[in-house]
Design a protein around this nucleic acid. Structure first.
Lengths: 360, 360
DNA sequence: AAAATATGCTTAAACGTTTAAGCAAACTAA
DNA sequence: TTAGTTTGCTTAAACGTTTAAGCATATTTT
């Protein structure tokens, strides 16, 4: 009997709060406390399964929380605990198979550990990248995982992140000067693999449409190219090595430039798939046989390389693994509260996918 | 003289706080207040350019804030103000030109108004989508802009968002049953445009590889297809209308299925570009001339449609405009604090891009 | 039976910000 | 002069959580 009277009493209080909820306000821990006539502290502990709260109370709290459609206020707990459980991710763009795959894997690893990620895009612009960093710092992220814009040379903004004591992990596009963790593939070796492959296919005059030297990864690809060419005693003409922005359009222009040479190359290694596509279009339009007249190799293994005619050989950058490792590296930092910037450079071996544009 | 003594005094306090900062702690409004010997409230007001604070104080506050490398704590202000200035975006995947372009435009519009966006991916999975919604609610987003997963049929989770009084805007993949704002293109009319175009090219037996009927947009495309076929008095055979998941692989399979018919179609309209690509591959492999033997039209205007051979005619979905409108619709809701779910369906006219796969 | 320990809560302060209300001092208007 | 207004701040409470400290009761140990 006494129980039923209690139950009726509770129901009354509950319904009172449910109607209050109807008036738009979100339920808080206080509301639950009021319904059950206990303190907010007890509710908080019950929800966190504190050992000093009775099973009976815990059950009641969980039940009322459900009925009131209670959702913990992340802002409040984050403020109190001094951590947001948010991780910022900065990429040049999401519209690329490489970056979206990296992101997906970062998300997968971090979600399991209770973190959520905020994705921002720099669109390869330095200014936008700085804005993104400000945004992320403002949002009180617990860490930042970033791939720098092509344009970025000034590292002050990244120093700002470091000075705040927030873990910073770079991937793909990084900088040695910034003493932070880095995950990437071995660009230098990748170039060697490509030249090796082209030499095996019988190519004797290999050109390179590269990215800008100031970006470390493109510089490494260029170094790998020149060293490999020297190693095989092939001609290393200035006219065969071209820097570019690696867009489709630029790929077209630089390919035309190569076609206009007195001594045309018999193979072209392009440091990016989009530019490689532009090059391919020019070759097709000029009825140049690929790979018989000129062989072509790209970089990045974008899905379209397997879609165009002929399909383009390319380098697989292990995006999934890079994402996974970047996330794990962040978690390492997050777990130990002492912010030891223990340099953690992880360089993965890339893989050459041979397709029609360079295969026999 | 007095000024210089004051200045020295200030410098002393400042340096004391700067060393304190060196010990990792982030500067707060309180630190600024302590340096200047004024109240935190005054500092807050100074930073917000309150008219009741003297210019002198404002200048001093700004200077000290800069010196201490002060960054406002978003969590605290969001908690106090009851809004996070974050907007959640849910897409099936970011690795698609359509979605990444929508996202970019949402971001552009919202950033200008002081909002930041949190991007999450459902990977076309209903479960992941629910997780994403929980995540976003937990993060206290001020609104959600979403495109539903293919799988999603149960709308309870979206009702949950509505019941919290959080503005919800759907785009591309929406549902009429959920009484919320929606931005999309006119799928029904798009089908008409395509059939019209194919008829003009002399096609007389047009097949449709569509998406699943349960998804509204694909259903509309199917309806548009059947109505247009009827209108032109063309054969509307069951064997010419196929539902599929619209992946590359499925595109291949369904195209093979069509090739095995006794009476092959002379045109195929595929409801997605990826599936259209699969179909194209099968046609190429079987040495079927495109568009002479069979014409092909895709949907979505993915960049690769202009890259493959032959280039694929497709429908431009106005991703930029959709993103812009979705963001503006959210802002409308955000500005009026009364949450009037004034239904706001915006249907844009799509555009047919004619390329080699269906042009003469 | 007294002392020690365990159980199940409550109280109160804190996280960093914002803001209504208040209060001197300085200025203005009568 | 005196009341009224403006200026430039301060005080204190609030947002929703978490948690150290405290305090009755109940239970166990001596």
């Amino acid at each position: 009997m006494i129980i039923s009277i209690k139950a009726i009493y509770l129901l009354k209080r509950l319904s009172k709060y449910i109607t209050k909820l109807g008036n738009k306000k979100k339920a808080t821990i206080k509301d639950i406390a009021n319904v059950l006539n206990i303190s907010p502290a007890a509710v908080s502990k019950a929800l966190h399964n504190d050992s000093r709260i009775s099973e009976k109370t815990k059950k009641a709290v969980r039940q009322v929380a459900k009925n009131l459609n209670y959702q913990p206020n992340h802002l409040a707990s984050a403020l109190r605990l001094g951590k947001s459980n948010l991780v910022g991710v900065i990429v040049p763009r999401t519209n690329s198979n490489f970056f979206s795959s990296v992101i997906q894997n970062i998300e997968e690893v971090l979600n399991k550990e209770g973190y959520n990620i905020i994705i921002t895009q720099s669109n390869e612009s330095y200014k936008k990248e700085c804005d993104n960093i400000d945004t992320l710092l403002f949002t009180q992220v617990d860490g930042i995982i970033a791939s720098m814009a092509n344009e970025t040379v000034d590292l002050d903004y990244y120093e700002k992140v470091k000075s705040k004591g927030i873990p910073l992990i770079l991937f793909d596009r990084g900088e040695n000067d910034l003493n932070v963790d880095y995950i990437g593939i071995n660009d230098y070796d990748s170039s060697h693999m490509i030249i090796e492959h082209l030499v095996n296919q019988g190519c004797k005059r290999i050109a390179h449409i590269g990215g800008f030297k100031r970006t470390r990864i493109y510089n490494n690809r260029i170094k790998g190219y020149t060293d490999a060419i020297k190693k095989h005693n092939l001609p290393l003409d200035d006219e065969l090595l071209i820097e570019s922005s690696l867009t489709i359009k630029d790929g077209r222009n630089k390919m035309l430039q190569l076609l206009n040479l007195n001594k045309r190359p018999d193979a072209v290694y392009v440091a990016g798939d989009y530019a490689a596509l532009g090059a391919l279009q020019v070759l097709n339009e000029n009825n140049i046989k690929i790979p018989e007249d000129i062989a072509l190799v790209g970089f990045g293994d974008e899905p379209f390389t397997a879609m165009v005619t002929p399909t383009i050989s390319s380098i697989n950058q292990h995006s999934a693994e890079i994402g996974r490792l970047a996330a794990l590296t962040f978690l390492e930092h997050a777990k130990k509260d002492v912010i030891t910037q223990s340099l953690n450079k992880k360089i993965l071996d890339a893989e050459l996918i041979v397709r029609d544009s360079s295969g026999k």
